[in-house]
Design a protein around this nucleic acid. Sequence first.
DNA 1: TGCGAACTTTACGTTTACGTAAAGGTAAAC
DNA 2: GTTTACCTTTACGTAAACGTAAAGTTCGCA
Lengths: 138, 138
Amino acid sequence: MTIHQEFNIGELAREFDITTRTIRHYEDLGLLKPRRQGQSRIYSPADRTRLKLILRGKRLGFSLEESRAIVDLYDPTHGNIQQLQALLEHIGQQRDKLNQQLDDIGKMLSSLDEAEAGCRAALDKTRERTKEKPREQT
Amino acid sequence: MTIHQEFNIGELAREFDITTRTIRHYEDLGLLKPRRQGQSRIYSPADRTRLKLILRGKRLGFSLEESRAIVDLYDPTHGNIQQLQALLEHIGQQRDKLNQQLDDIGKMLSSLDEAEAGCRAALDKTRERTKEKPREQT
DNA sequence: TGCGAACTTTACGTTTACGTAAAGGTAAAC
DNA sequence: GTTTACCTTTACGTAAACGTAAAGTTCGCA
């Protein structure tokens, strides 16, 4: 027997540090479709995963529409060939975008290294001028 | 003699595939400060670099305010110690965010691999059923 | 000299991604 | 039974990042 843990909206909001409004907003856009128990929304582990993917997309600067595309890769209506080929193409595009981001991040990180080095150098100079003792590592 | 190439707004817009409105918008926010020749804006290579950094930030989902912080790392008013230490802290935060993104991208890329595999498998099955000849690689 | 193709400013409009308030239902706890 | 703490819907508000239209200037050239 697998454990079928389910979640209500407040639990998910707390877990991912977002508001319930945000979760409902995603539902308005059709990104989530929790089942209902009376009025209340009940989220399955699959729903939770979808939400996690959406938030990951957000951290990467994806729009919710872009995230929808990503999320939909996980339960595609494996319909006809054209759909599948369109899907493959889309996967390729996503990969390209992510690789571009990898490149951007690499450049930014080395820029940060430079900036940090320059910054530390400037700090040292300032300390020298003010005859301050070198500080402990921060 | 180093070449001091300068640019007008249209050249930059074309180079980076954005509108002139966008560039002026960045100026409104204080992200760019081109010199003027009469009425017209003239951009230095440094201005161009700032623009490039802003757009890189955009690709990574940074807000313009976040990009401002990044861009400012390149010509900080190397003022007092507090400023420099705040700067170091900020650099650390940026690094953390980028590393989080690296992690996110890794996970997304492997997800895409899975999705692609599943997609190709489904395609193969479909071809099998329809007794279609395998297609050339796309 | 007058046309087109650039540039300029001003200003209202639009999309995305929620925030926030209003008004109410439900269920355990005191 | 009435707080308290959730949940619900509806709906207007808002910040960010530009789009877009209007109206004007300036430059090169045919």
